[in-house]
Design a protein around this nucleic acid. Structure first.
Lengths: 168, 168
DNA sequence: GCCTTTTATTTTAAGTCTAAAACATCCGCA
DNA sequence: TGCGGATGTTTTAGACTTAAAATAAAAGGC
């Protein structure tokens, strides 16, 4: 297995190279953060202005929309990557406002099942439509034929980060 | 002006195509958000565990580190893309803890100038070093020779979004 | 059948964030 | 000089966020 020979492929790496990579990584991170912040801020603003709704609330509805038979409450924190305690007041308010229902399971009284109501589903569809067109408007200037390529790169990035977090 | 002729280059676009682009845009947005959330959460966790510090506080110090002569307070919200009101308590606490100073300008008594203290600078350097190595650790699995390419794509994306937000 | 451990959820404390209102000061202009 | 509008900052009200502690119920070992 051709290993040796050519100029050091990996190990005796110069400090300058290391520094350059650090900087490149930091630049990437800052850009990533800037893009997300920019888009998220604009979407949040429109949600608030148009529907007097917040993104976390919308995110919960989006998950439930895919599950006609409802979802175990504990599944939401995992899917939305937020803490469980965080969801309690959000779900509370969605129930209060009539968008979803929360019913305890008969098999395990610790577990609750949340399910979208008919009105909730209607409201969600309306908001999702706007959400899609806002996104289209914001991303219109980015070439459509490179959307998937960039998504793929980000997928790889996500996988790499997840792996790095897994092992330690 | 050659407008007509060839198979519709832009307008009579099929609904299916439009739908496909919507989906591609949504996928991109979700991936972007997932990557940012993942990395941000991990960095925040480490900041808290290692230094009992938060990222917004670190971000403020990072800005001031680049400005030896200090910065007008009003510049911070712009650079960090957060609201002004948000910074007040953060700056308050950084002053309280001795990392920075806040002095009113003599020319304009509305304006305040914030400046890092010696201890603040020392603490920042220590944290920035860890921050860099954490990032390197998290991004280690992503090919180094594609960092700049991805950063460039994100730059374009950011520009496109900014343009879209400018004109409305 | 108890007792310990695990699992699902809520509560609490502290911090971050925004939008909008309130304050304070400055500037231009008559 | 004094007034009206612009600008810099803080305050307020409301929502989200996490981590950690508390509660409640189930599961498993003995």
């Amino acid at each position: 297995m051709a290993l040796a020979k050519e100029p050091p492929p990996v190990s005796p790496r110069s400090g300058a190279d290391q520094e350059a990579e650090y900087r490149a990584q930091t630049r990437l991170w800052l850009r990533l953060l800037a893009c997300t912040t920019l888009i998220e801020g604009e979407l949040r603003r429109r949600f608030r202005e148009e529907f007097d709704f917040t993104m976390p609330r919308f995110d919960v509805l989006a998950q439930l929309d895919r599950e006609p038979s409802g979802l175990v409450l504990g599944e939401l924190p995992k899917r939305l990557m937020v803490s469980a305690g965080n969801l309690t007041p959000i779900v509370d308010r969605l129930v209060e406002d009539g968008y979803i229902t929360r019913t305890p399971s008969n098999l395990d009284r610790r577990v609750q099942i949340v399910c979208m109501t008919v009105e909730g589903r209607k409201a969600f569809r309306r908001m999702a439509k706007s959400h899609g067109s806002w996104l289209a408007e914001l991303l219109a200037g980015f070439p459509a034929d490179r959307l998937d390529g960039l998504t793929g790169e980000l997928d790889e990035l996500k996988g790499a980060v997840r792996d790095a977090m897994q092992k330690p």
